[in-house]
């Protein structure tokens, strides 16, 4: 049975009409229409579905969308500074070779963005902990870590 509620995503309020057991990930992708957030394991293990809720990284696959009412949801589509302008994390991931298949990239960026927002000069260990909920099966991680470190130094 559907119920209606409002969801604030990237500063825009969306009216949602859906069953209350739907995950935030599924609502974002199919009702809101933002497909940058990915479904990897759908089991809270891989971090491909990472979004920010009130600026904190959360696995959206295992978070009920209805519980996000009245909170601020930020997805990969919401971190762009302006039209056609890459976010520094996006640019550095490309420059450093931290993107291969790209499926983990949106989730990696959300975790890294949350880390850098509260810690402008993280140590390598702090970057590893900040990204510890995100799996990447292509890169071997080193180039992703380098991209986050570079972004921190530039800021």
């Amino acid at each position: 049975m559907s119920e209606t509620y409002e969801l604030e995503v990237n500063g825009v309020s969306y009216p949602i009409s859906a069953a209350m057991d739907r995950s935030l990930l599924s609502i974002l992708r199919t009702e809101v229409g933002l497909t940058g957030t990915k479904e990897g394991c759908d089991d809270c293990e891989c971090g491909a579905c990472m979004v920010l809720i009130d600026d904190q990284p959360v696995n959206s696959c295992s978070y009920l969308a209805a519980q996000a009412q009245g909170r601020r949801v930020t997805t990969i589509e919401g971190i762009l500074d302006g039209e056609n302008q890459l976010h520094p994390l996006q640019r550095n991931l490309l420059d450093e070779g931290g993107v291969q298949c790209g499926f983990c990239t949106p989730g990696m960026i959300m975790s890294a963005q949350a880390l850098l927002a509260r810690n402008t000069s993280p140590t390598q260990e702090e970057i590893r902990i900040g990204l510890s909920g995100n799996l990447c099966r292509c890169t071997g991680y080193q180039r992703i870590l380098a991209a986050v470190e570079k972004t921190a130094t530039e800021a």
Partner: peptide, 25 residues
């Protein structure tokens, strides 16, 4: 009751036990 759902929702998605009919956040 549901707080973060890190056991309840993950357990339901893994098929351990379905979500309760009525939840209070």
């Amino acid at each position: 009751p549901i707080a973060g759902g890190t056991d309840l929702v993950v357990g339901a998605r893994q098929g351990k036990s379905p979500l309760p009919e009525s939840l209070i956040a």
